[in-house]
């Protein structure tokens, strides 16, 4: 008995150390970027365009570019994602088509991001002749974001009690009325949380935008959806690998701004979740 207790102590200690060895690098990573980047994050850096082959000036066009891409992504992926989740939860019968949709969602979530880049390039840039543009990049990121939005929406819809639907049907409401008034309102928190989370991922992605929208050096703001833009992740990639003699603090500062943007979006999703959980009435 005693030996077993000692073995348990040792085993738990090993588990704790393994966990610690994961936690420390996470904290170090954040600390490292923040420490080296924060001094260069000035008002000028955030609000000005890059100059002198990106070695001076700020990253304003890249910040705007990333925000524009995130909004574009949302405009495409939110409606399609939510509607397909509604199909799966509320309409789908157990047939071949439904199984195919489910399999496709699983599949989409496993496809590497660079494949999305290739696909976006052939379909949107070349075939649909959109060129390397905000439109092509947003569409590519949108397809990549679909599985997360669909899965989150599905879970949100499934968590709405069946009785709500029953009440609505029993009063003579149609299927869509029931979904619109008695299901969707209660699923919105989950949908929002999932959407913001998937968008924060889209904001940090580089591979899908490499050939579909990202501009190497474009120190002005986009004028239409057919323009290229700079984007934060791609900018960080280029200045850290393609630009010789790049001042280090600018790279760190760019990394800092990118992480900050992604964290803010995550924070929004956490706050949304907490806010709605408090208000939950059933």
């Amino acid at each position: 008995m005693n030996a077993a207790r000692i073995r348990q102590k040792i085993a738990f200690l090993v588990l704790a150390i393994a966990t610690l060895l994961i936690v420390i690098p996470i904290l170090l990573t954040i600390f490292y970027i923040v420490k080296n980047g924060i001094s260069a994050v000035t008002w000028t850096f955030i609000t000005q365009s890059p100059r002198n082959g990106m070695k001076e000036g700020g990253i304003f066009p890249a910040i705007v570019g990333t925000i524009v891409l995130v909004i574009g992504t949302m405009l495409f992926s939110l409606p399609v994602g939510v509607l397909s989740a509604i199909y799966l939860v509320e309409y789908a019968k157990d047939n071949f088509f439904t199984r195919l949709v489910k399999l496709s969602v699983v599949n989409l979530s496993g496809i590497p991001s660079i494949i999305y880049g290739l696909f976006g390039f052939t379909l949107f840039v070349l075939l649909m002749k959109l060129g390397t543009s905000i439109l092509a990049g947003s569409l590519t990121l949108a397809i990549m974001s679909l599985p997360v939005i669909i899965t989150a929406t599905k879970e949100a819809l499934e968590s709405v009690p069946f009785s709500f639907r029953e009440i609505s049907f029993s009063l003579g409401a149609t299927k869509w009325q029931t979904i619109r008034y008695c299901v969707l309102p209660y699923a919105i928190p989950g949908i929002l949380t999932g959407t913001v989370l998937s968008l924060s991922r889209a904001a940090g992605e580089t591979a899908p935008i490499l050939f579909t929208v990202a501009a190497f050096y474009l120190p002005r703001l986009p004028r239409s959806v057919f323009d290229q833009v700079m984007a934060l992740p791609y900018h960080l990639y280029t200045i850290s690998t393609q630009v010789p003699n790049m001042p280090m603090e600018l790279s760190f500062a760019t990394g800092f701004v990118l992480i900050a943007l992604v964290f803010i979006m995550n924070l929004v999703s956490i706050i949304l979740r907490a806010h709605y959980r408090k208000k939950k009435l059933w």
Partner: peptide
Amino acid sequence: ENILRRKIGIIF
């Protein structure tokens, strides 16, 4: 269905 259920209501 929606007309019928309106005419025949139910209490659970």
